[in-house]
Amino acid sequence: MDPVVVVHGGGASNISKDRKERVRQGMVRAATEGYNILKQGGTAVDAVEGAVTVLEDDPEFNAGRGSVLNVNGEVEMDASIMDGKDLSTGAVSAVRCIANPIKLARLVMEKTPHCFLTDQGAAKFAASMGIPEIPGEQLVTERSKKHLEKEKQEKGAQKADCQKNLGTVGAVALDSKGNVAYATSTGGIVNKMVGRVGDTPCVGSGGYADNDIGAISTTGHGESILKVNLARLTLFYVEQGKTLEEAANLSLGYMKSRLKGLGGLILLNKTGDWVVKWTSAAMPWAAAKDGKLHSGINLDETTIADLP
C-alpha cells in the first residue's frame, strides 16, 4: 500500500489574511510529519498521533496550545484516536494542563481496559503515565483571550451558534500494511459552559476508523455532529457503495438541512483514495500521497507541491 495522510485544521467562518499563511504552513507541517512517519515504517496510528501533535503545539489552531476558552477563561480539551485494525479506541474529555491530549487519548487506548476517560480521572491517569502537568496559562494565547471577550460582548454566555465555533484539528492515515486510523483534537467552543463536551472525543461523531471501510475525522458544530453521528453516518454511505464524494456530500448535507449545522470532514478509504469536504466558509487541509503534497483553505483552491 502507498501510505497516505490527510489533515484538517477545523472549519472556519473567516481566516484573516495575516493568519492564512501561518495556518497553511501548519497544515503542511502536520501532513509532512504524518507522511514521514509512514514512510519510515510507522503505523497509521503513529502517523495520525504525530500529525495532530504538530497541530496541538501550533497556537494557530483550536487544540492544545491554541485552544479557545470556556466561560471562566480556562482551557478544557477533548481528543480521540482509533485504530482501524481492531477498532480499539481511546478518548479524553475536559482535560486541562497537558500539552497534547491526543497522546493521552492513545495511552487510554493502549494502557487501559477502557475507551474514554474524563476530567479528574483523565488527569490522574496522565500523571500515572508520566505526562507532565503544565500551568494552564501556558495553553492560553492572546488571540483566545480576545476571542472570549468578543464572544461575551456579542452573545452573552452559553448561546451556541451553528454557524461559528468550528475549530478542531484532525488526521486520517493509511499505512503500508493497509491499516487506517484517525485522530481528532479540540479546545471546544469559545465561551462554553464548564464541563461541556462536544463531538471530538465521541467515536462515531468526531471520527471513526475501520480497515474494512476507511477512516474519517470531522469538524464543525459539535452539537450537530453528535446528533447525526457524522463520522459513522458518512462511512455508512461508503459501505453502501457511494463514492467518497457522494458519502461526504450526503452526510454533511443531511446535517445542514436537518439541523442547520455546518461542518467539514476528511475521508479516506481502504485503497487510499481521499476526499475533503466542508459546508463552512473555509477549512484548512493538507494531504500527502505518492510524494505529493496537496493543500487548501477555501473552496476551489488547491495547491500541489512535491514533498521535501
Results as ranks from 00 to 15, higher is better:
V7S: 06
R106N: 05
I297W: 05
N269F: 09
A63Q: 13
L265P: 00
Q138S: 12
S251E: 04
L235S: 06
R65H: 06
A160L: 14
D83K: 09
K146M: 10
T234H: 10
Y237H: 15
G198F: 13
A157H: 11
G264D: 02
E56S: 06
I15H: 01
V194N: 02
G66A: 11
L293K: 07
A181Y: 03
D18C: 10
I15T: 11
S224K: 01
L235E: 05
M109F: 03
V194K: 10
L268G: 11
G291F: 00
N179H: 15
H114R: 06
V228G: 13
V92L: 12
W278C: 00
S176R: 15
V52N: 13
P59H: 09
A44G: 12
G10S: 05
I134K: 09
V23T: 14
E74D: 15
A99H: 09
L235W: 05
A47R: 08
G206R: 11
D57W: 09
G222V: 12
T279H: 02
L117I: 03
H221Q: 02
V275G: 01
T243W: 08
R196L: 06
I297L: 04
R143P: 06
T118G: 14
G170I: 07
W274C: 04
Q163K: 14
L38F: 09
G291D: 01
K256A: 03
S93W: 01
D290I: 01
G204Q: 00
Q163I: 07
G204I: 07
